[in-house]
């Protein structure tokens, strides 16, 4: 009996001895004293576009994220709603995981699902996003579609502060494809560029910033031919009005 008690005591002691460092390592303060996960929803673009050929578009581009400093999960969305056809000319949804790779750069990987009017595509995505020297925000991705076609896009944005509330943002976007995917109007080589200049005003914090601007879109070489064959335009100027939204 007493031996049993003794061994139980021994067990208890061992347990305590084991438990103590375990508790020390756990450090509940790490839970209570730090903020670890964050979320956000924002739309960089939420706008109405009116082209020089009387085309009307509604455009949304934004993201929602949840995660920590080390790992974020993002849903990135981009859509162009064409008024004349009552249809999504572009509709992309990306689901990616993003992680820091250096002080100013994050790598991301995931999938992109395109479901516009017409044929759908699913892509694998590998991307790099971050802040380049001189405050250029850069985002570039490599896509490989379920049809086996690869393409690369590149986006850069620069903000010029007229005042601390009136901000001019200049954007540049381009797409280059390594192979042709006729069905979705993608030719080999340089596909398109989009250059935009928007003047915004931070009306409510940085949560709601209405803007006006000008956007120039152009398609090149094979892609331009494909667009012409489909009866579309290859170069457009748009007047845009919209708002940047962030929650």
């Amino acid at each position: 009996m007493s031996r049993l008690t003794a061994s139980m005591c021994g067990l208890a002691l061992t347990a305590t001895a084991l438990a103590t460092p375990a508790i020390a390592q756990e450090d509940a303060g790490k839970e209570t004293q730090t903020s670890r996960t964050f979320w956000g929803v924002s739309a960089e673009k939420f706008e109405y576009r009116y082209s020089d050929s009387d085309e009307e578009l509604a455009v949304i581009e934004g993201d929602a994220y949840y995660g920590s400093d080390e790992l974020k999960f993002l849903w990135l969305f981009e859509g162009e709603w064409e008024e004349a056809h009552n249809a999504w000319e572009t509709l992309e949804n990306q689901f990616v995981a993003q992680t820091p790779v250096s002080d100013f750069w994050d790598a991301k990987a995931g999938i992109r699902v395109d479901t516009p009017e017409g044929p759908d595509r699913v892509f694998g995505v590998l991307g790099l996003t971050g802040l380049a020297p001189y405050w250029f925000e850069v985002d570039t991705n490599l896509y490989v579609s379920d049809e086996g076609d690869a393409s690369v896009d590149f986006e850069a944005e620069y903000e010029l502060l007229i005042t601390n509330y009136w901000i001019v943002s200049a954007t540049f976007e381009t797409l280059v494809a390594f192979s042709e995917d006729k069905e979705i109007g993608v030719g080999q080589g340089l596909n398109s560029t989009e250059v935009g200049v928007r003047l915004s005003y931070d009306l409510i914090d940085r949560a709601f910033s209405p803007y006006v601007g000008v956007v120039h879109e152009r398609k090149y070489s094979d892609t331009a031919d494909l667009a012409r064959d489909a009866g579309g335009s290859t170069e457009d100027w748009f007047a845009v009005v919209g708002a940047r939204i962030s929650f």
Binding site: D27, A28, G29, Q33
Partner: peptide, 9 residues
């Protein structure tokens, strides 16, 4: 009075 360090809260 620091939860997780001095006491549970």
């Amino acid at each position: 009075g620091v939860p997780g360090i001095s006491f549970p809260g």
